[in-house]
Simulated scan of single mutants.
Amino acid sequence: MELYRSAMVLGGVGDALGYKNSRWENCPSGVVILSELKALGGLEGITLSVDDWPVSDDTVMHIVTAQALVSDFWSLDDLYREMVKVYVEIVEKINKRQTDPATIEGCTQLKPDNYLLGWHTPFNEKGSGYGAATKAMCVGMRYWQPEKLDNLVQVSIECGRMTHNHPTGFLGSLCTALFASYAIQRKPVVEWGREMLKVLSEAENYCRKTIRHMAEYQENWFYFETKWQSYLEERGIAREGQNTPTFPKNYDAEKRDQVYKEWSSEGVGGRRGHDAPMIAYDALLSAGNNWTNLCNHAMFHGGQSGATGSIAGCLYGLLFGMTNIPKGLYQNLEFRETLEELAAKLHKAANASEGP
């Protein structure tokens, strides 16, 4: 239970730090961000508050997704109807939080009054953004057991493509859900990436069964897989038995910005569904249980640092808890009580024997 609490809260902390009321999330230079952080007294000198350090839409969407997952649903279709309801209700409230445009567009295309097809949205050529990935860690927390893998795959894809109906987008939600489940299973972090790639065939099979947009999906499917395979080879951990990742000799803020841009599809690290989880994963591999190093890599870089920070913070919480976290970072965090309540409910739902 304590790790669930840590995950939900630190996801918000990572988001608020990387976002910095849109200032750092729109800054192209990690060097500049770390310089400004030093002037604030470093992580120990920061007290996150609603006014100066609000969370972004990433945490708000993670909250409402978790609320749907702990609701009293009796089938997965019923769960999707609940997700449609909470997404439609929240869309107007997140506009002021520098929202991923695909999130807004997707939410407005949902049909809460359509019982059978309410969560079906059109294929979106621009739906490859990070927003599906940042709301789905709770899916992996709800369906973390290996025997619940089918549920994890289906729910993460459906929740992802409600707002990001593009493989690069909704495979990002599958990725972060899987990583959360691997963290709870205590699977070694170095294995996560290659284990995730093994599940992509199951994701494709599920999409074929739903008979929606497969022609468009096939044109765009392999980008996500190819980028991740390339990343794992770059780190030297693409094959079984390769369990020692290799990093650039001088992996400082300037070098990280350069590397993250190379992984991206448009020169903005973390903007898409493939590289937001990738940067968070890379930060976990590099930092281990060192919270400061994790923040330097995942929250304080040029690019979509709120998105990568929210994913990295949540996964760190599942792995290591709150022991090394300065109190100023979470005691006044926006929505902290809501996040803690949802953590308890997710833990209870995840470990109940009955239900879908």
Rank of each mutant, 00 (worst) to 15 (best):
K249C: 13
E240L: 14
N289D: 14
E204N: 10
Y316C: 05
Y143S: 08
K255Y: 12
K261A: 14
D78H: 08
L200P: 02
P112Q: 00
E337F: 10
G193M: 00
K249L: 15
D113E: 06
V259H: 08
G129M: 05
W221V: 07
I325E: 00
D15K: 03
T176R: 11
Y260V: 11
P28Y: 02
D282Y: 04
E89F: 04
Y80D: 00
I211L: 15
N290G: 01
P101R: 01
L117T: 13
G11T: 02
W221A: 06
V60L: 10
R23L: 14
K96Q: 07
E340I: 10
K227F: 12
F335K: 11
S6P: 05
L110Y: 01
E2P: 11
C314L: 13
E341A: 14
Y87S: 01
G140R: 04
A238S: 15
L110I: 01
D51P: 09
K187S: 12
I94F: 01
R194H: 08
D275S: 12
F300C: 10
F73D: 01
N95V: 13
G306M: 02
N293F: 06
L294D: 03
Q304H: 15
V199R: 14
Y130G: 09
V84C: 00
V64L: 04
N293G: 12
T47L: 07
K348C: 14
M214L: 13
G18F: 03
G288Q: 03
